[in-house]
Design a protein around this nucleic acid. Sequence first.
DNA 1: CTGAAAGCGCTAACAT
DNA 2: ATGTTAGCGCTTTCAG
Lengths: 343, 343
Amino acid sequence: MNKTIYDVAREAGVSMATVSRVLNGTAVVKEETKAKVLAAIELLGYRPNAVARGLASKRTKSIGVILPDVSDLFHAEILRGIEDIATMYQYHIILANSDAREAREIDLIGTMWEKQVDGLLFISEKITPDIVRTFEQAQLPVVLCATDDPEGRIPAVSIDNQSAARDAVDYFLEKGVRRIAYLGGPTAHPVTMERLKGYTAAFQAAGLPFDQELVLHADTLKYEDGYAQAKRFLDQGHTAEAVVAASDELALGYLNAVRDRGGKAPDDVLLLGFDNTRLSTMTRPELSVIAQPTYDLGAVSMRLLTKLLNDEQIDEYTVRLPHSIIERTSTQRNETAAEDPNR
Amino acid sequence: MNKTIYDVAREAGVSMATVSRVLNGTAVVKEETKAKVLAAIELLGYRPNAVARGLASKRTKSIGVILPDVSDLFHAEILRGIEDIATMYQYHIILANSDAREAREIDLIGTMWEKQVDGLLFISEKITPDIVRTFEQAQLPVVLCATDDPEGRIPAVSIDNQSAARDAVDYFLEKGVRRIAYLGGPTAHPVTMERLKGYTAAFQAAGLPFDQELVLHADTLKYEDGYAQAKRFLDQGHTAEAVVAASDELALGYLNAVRDRGGKAPDDVLLLGFDNTRLSTMTRPELSVIAQPTYDLGAVSMRLLTKLLNDEQIDEYTVRLPHSIIERTSTQRNETAAEDPNR
DNA sequence: CTGAAAGCGCTAACAT
DNA sequence: ATGTTAGCGCTTTCAG
């Protein structure tokens, strides 16, 4: 059997309450007795049992993180941000992969409740009514990360996907490029559909038409699907001057599909990735991207959650982090300058 | 306040002990009363509190995972394997990043103990005596993953790094290549040093000398350091016919360093990566690699841990998973066939 | 097959 | 400033 707070109390000649006090700093303890307690703790090699503490205090100092897949680079980077801030605030992470399946997500919210997590960080492709209902039933503080609740009822941290995509199109438009394709995700995926809205909005705002056949939907945001979709597109004889992809992997898929048929970027097509994962600097040409502050998405949402948990003053329940375009080689035409000086 | 087992008992007109029994299947309960209990649970929307359960039973059904960095692709893939098997056995994962810093690792083992995890999965670059001692003090079942205890006292799942590297060198030797470089990690990193041993052993076994200047040590296994190290090497006027890298990222760094000075793989250098992360098929040329069963490394170590926890019969406390060479384009000389027909 | 009762190790009033 | 006393919600003997 292991040491308990009671053993420490006896060793130090005080009551267990006093030990608890020096452990948690919940009340002032005389320097002298505090020293005795600390000495006893040291002597016995005592460590508090967090489970017992959790039961008694109703706060476990652990937070649940539900995400589609840790082995996805984008999620893994977010998770790192979450973890760092969690550590800073003494929280632990209970991790679960959902594979973006709603049934599993709902199930996981339940088991997270059972684990008595203090709060939940939720990363998903789509926030459905059933999920929102489950949040409400669970009565858990939740922050959405890299996703939005369409109704805006749940605190969330994300970028403005629509204007990010719009900026991307504008970026090409300003270069004088018109035949711009959008290589997005499945139509059931709100985040990338939001980007599609931005894509079309940019054309509309510029008073330009756009070709519906230039809108591609890959089954996922993964490389393989990007490649497959690009190959199909190109095999059908279509072409694009530029492509705005909904992820770095998708852009890479397009890039390699072009290359595998003898083409080349940026000579034959200008490519813009999305996310700015580490991937984008590992390729040749290096991938220009619409950068999301991936790590910060995680860090900020965790910070927001701590505020929720401590009843701190909160200015914004929905925070939009800034995006930006990072220009690397995949969009640099050899004959044109990086920036169009006009306008 | 939330529903407790007591509420269910009253609703069903039985004692809490009986409710506990149907919940856990710890004893036979009459079908009829079981049905009543189940109905009450359903009616109240009752969910057991895992923290209370953990305190009473001394088993939390959660296991701690300590790894250097989730945002590293290799670790993230391992973690996915861990998670899947953990889910299968109803365990939850408490995740913590150590940044491979010993002090932090030791600290984390302690906090994992506080959390009363049932077991620990430990992924690190180096198992030091202090870490081993901490394991012993914590009295936690531990399985090392993708690492070994040099003394072999701790259950571990990994590949045979030495023979993997040796196979890599032999692979090139059989192609008639002699000037083979090794692009490894820091000298303080046992796993990659083990690979270096295999590298030198291959030359010795073949009765061939090897050039010490062809042994490169990058500061980490990351792309950036691979690039930097390769650039330095090439800038100094060195060359290699082939390079065996200690990670896919390192190989990619070399690849791009070559490319950025106008060279090309496989024409100017044959490149073999290590790990077979998703990266290796996303590059052009596609990277030939020494494949580790990354996902399985996680899955098998988690499975081993469940055996430890359930006192199942265990045949091997140290399991070696098989590695293999996957031949893609980065080692395919245009003029030579994939396989040397002789021998 | 089921109930009563005693903890698990800690926090948090409530006293003093 | 410190001690006493109830629980937190469950599992687990021990009876019956």
